[in-house]
Amino acid sequence: MTKQWIAGVDLGGTTTKIAFITLDGEIIEKWEIPTDNTDKGKNITRNIANSITEKLGNLGQKKDQLLGVGMGAPGPVDYKTGVILNAVNLGWHDNFPLKDYLEAATALPAIIENDANCAALGEMWKGAGNGAKELVCVTLGTGVGGGVITNGKIVQGMNGAAGEIGHITVIPSGGAQCNCGKTGCLETVASATGIVRLAKEVLAKPTMAGELAEKYTANGYISAKDVFDCARNQDVLANHVLDEVAFYLGLALANIANTLNPEKIVLGGGVSKAGNILLKAVREQFERFAFSAVRASTKLTLATLGNDAGVIGAAWLIKEKIES
Rank of each mutant, 00 (worst) to 15 (best):
L23A: 02
D24P: 00
E26C: 05
E26Q: 08
E26L: 05
I27P: 03
I28A: 00
I28Y: 03
E29W: 01
E29Q: 05
E29G: 03
E29Y: 12
E32F: 01
P34Q: 06
P34L: 05
P34M: 00
T35S: 04
T35P: 03
D36C: 08
D36Q: 11
N37V: 05
T38V: 08
D39I: 03
D39C: 01
K40D: 12
K40G: 03
K40H: 15
K40F: 13
G41R: 03
G41T: 09
K42L: 15
N43W: 14
T45Y: 03
T45A: 14
A49H: 10
N50G: 15
I52Y: 04
T53I: 15
T53Y: 06
E54M: 13
E54W: 06
E54L: 11
E54A: 14
K55N: 10
K55D: 03
G57E: 14
N58H: 15
N58R: 13
N58L: 07
G60V: 09
G60M: 11
Q61P: 11
Q61L: 05
K63N: 08
D64K: 12
Q65I: 10
Q65M: 10
Q65P: 05
L66K: 06
L66V: 00
L66H: 12
L67D: 02
L67C: 10
V69K: 00
G70W: 06
G70P: 02
P74N: 14
P76A: 14
P76H: 06
P76N: 07
D78P: 02
D78H: 13
Y79A: 11
G82N: 01
I84M: 08
L85S: 11
L85P: 00
A87E: 01
V88C: 06
G91M: 00
G91H: 08
W92G: 07
N95T: 04
L98W: 10
L98P: 02
K99R: 12
Y101W: 11
Y101R: 05
L102T: 11
A104E: 12
A105H: 02
A105Y: 04
T106H: 10
A107D: 15
L108P: 07
L108S: 02
L108G: 04
P109C: 01
A110W: 08
